[in-house]
Design a protein around this nucleic acid. Sequence first.
RNA 1: GGGCGGUUAGCUCAGCUGGUUAGAGCGCCUGCCUUACAAGCAGGAUGUCGGGGGUUCGAAUCCCUCACCGCCCACCA
Length: 778
Amino acid sequence: MPHDLPKTYDPAAIEDRWAAYWLTEKLFSVPAEAQGSPAPFTMLLPPPNVTGRLHMGHMLNQTEMDILARWHRMRGDPTLWVPGTDHAGIATQMMVERQLAAEGTSRQELGRERFVERAWQWKSVYGGAILDQMKRLGASVDWSREYFTMNERLSVAVKEAFVRLWEQGLIYRGNYIVNWDPVQQTAVSDLEVTHQERLGSIYHIRYPLADGSGSIIIATTRPETMLGDVAVAVNPDDQRYQALVGRLLRLPLSATYDGAEREIPILADSWANPEFGTGAVKVTPAHDPNDYAIGERHSLPKLTVMDEQARIDLPGSPYHGLDRLAARDRIVEDLGALGLLVEVKEHSMSIGLSQRTGAVIEPRLSTQWFLRIQPLADVAVAAVEQGDIRFTPDQYRKTYGEWMRNIHDWCLSRQLWWGHRIPAWHCAACAQITVARNTPAACADCGSNALSQETDVLDTWFSSGLLPFTVFGWPEQSPDLARFYPTQLLVTGFDILFFWVARMIMLGCWFMKDVPMPDGSERPLAEAVPFREVYIHALVRDAEGQKMAKTKGNVIDPIEMVSRYGTDAVRFTLASMASPGTDIAFSEARTEGNRAFANKIWNAARFIFMNVDRAAEAGIPVDMHALGSMPAIGEDAPLEAQWITSQLAATAAEVSRALEEYRFHEAAMLTYQFFWGDFCDWYLEIVKVRLDFADANKRAGALEALTTLLRTFEAALRLLSPFMPFLTEELWHALYTGAPPAPSIALSRYPTEQDPFPRVPGVTQRMKSLQDLIVAVR
RNA sequence: GGGCGGUUAGCUCAGCUGGUUAGAGCGCCUGCCUUACAAGCAGGAUGUCGGGGGUUCGAAUCCCUCACCGCCCACCA
């Protein structure tokens, strides 16, 4: 019997069951048809990496999105929430390599083809685990539309996007200085480099003039790069050096690999800062971005002196084969022996580290593929400035704008094996490049068939940046694309504002402006944007407000929390702390409190069901399905009935208002206060005395009270449902004794200010007097 | 070097566009197994809202300033 609930709420007993039910019944699948119906509410789930497990940040993200999705769905909006996972190039490749290392083998030993196979195996195991965890959290996504960023369909779209950009002249390939990760041996973008303040040394080194008439002292933090020096620059306005400009220096140590000491010029360049060091700066175009720029300005040669692993690459030299740091020590030593090391000082500097591997980034000259970003950035700036995309909190609009206005070309290529391979083919005969959607039979230039495909893959964020339209079938003009693009809202963390949000805006606006509207008209920018709104949430920290990190050992596993307190309690905790713009200090104590809240609701249901049963025993069964057609609460109804229904209406209105502005904490607290404070503490206590079915004289009143109680409770469950989907689903079905009016409470309607009960004016004041009286008596 | 956020009860945090005795959870104190719930009920204590100055009839809330904490961005050897 559904009314026979255990005394204590046990989430584990019901959550798996409902998660499976929502899945098998495909409750949240949305067809593309239904033209002319209300505008859909569409969201794209930020795809988790297939590298491992979900963390608290994912759970916060999914909780917020799920609350909004369920709320919109219950308000009657066709709601589509698309889930998926990301192949996460570097991150996944590293995991697989680590796994191989544990097996005593390596990527190189396996070869590209078999390595990629292994990566796919990894994906099916760990990608699957992540999806299972999402299901456990109750995310009301449309599983029929689930994607993986390297699926065949998405691969086609990625190639199409790349080829189009190439055809538009926006992609170029060239030898430029890039951020090089010597551990993964790949280029990474500026965003993938994190900077850390570290105390190092600055070395003052004497470079003698070629004619022996004197010397100049340069300052450097990376003496090993002097092997690739091609000049020394001084500021044109620097009085100290004006006479030396144009003269030649003999580069120390260069005789060891060049036969004789190489002569390099002193040149004037305003980059040299007279205030810094000695005012004279060595120029190494192949190993420093600033020096590269100087080299370009003065047409200097670019000498590469390090290999892919950041070892000195100068055959014949005593430094050959040494790691850059070992080489540094050796060079400093040698300079000292030569009497050319003038001074070594401690120096605090910002050092670039690879976000993924932690390796010190080595600026390196290499051939890479770039996207000319300015035209895309211009459109992306316009979209936000015109208000076609709105940020919450608004401060991120500014952050975004500043980044977008100072953007650099995007290095798209990665020297990895796991990822979308660049659709370009090199001709062995004429060395030309053929970029094509499908493997070309012959070189587009000379017709030779000696073609080999480019070995580089694309930056992961290139494919994920296309997702808002590729998930809906682009480049096909599919019904999904027509119906669901642009998406309504993106919910994500600030950590991927530039990586992902900004890229989606650029690529979405750029490609979609060329796709006509469903009626054939030209697409305005407001309809080309990938989403109309962005809600950016903060970080989930531990209870002490510390950032969670494996090294600190304070990482909280959401799945563990869920199995201990129930998904609803954890969700509610996150929601009740999710204030826009503020980090969340996840507190287990608070989660316990919310588990108590779930238990409170559970027991309120038990009390109500007990009375329904008592009424039935007294010969007055209540038909839940008939409650909707009962007259509304009138002025002749008891005060507490008028009051609780008014409170419900007011709360429903306020919750909706809070959710409209993404004030999750407020929405959650409102439901909490209504349910516990108003409904349980006051209303239930007062109504208890009326529920006397034994006394025939009181039966009419008792039945009326029970009716209002049931109607209010049923509406309260719906009010709470987006926040606590499992518990409310269970109780809602129980309330209807297993025969509910809809397959799920998620498909019922959200309470509004009018529905189910209109507010009664003045009742709050009258109730307040009664409450004051009762408190006084106590 | 730019930019942003924070500083409110013992702890973790709310307090939106300024308005009656500043709130929540947990913790603490007192009394209750009242037949929905001890993961509960009733009651209680606790805050010169970081310091200073200003605007206002009125400021935790707006402005200035100082202090401390945190974050983001940036090619200064």
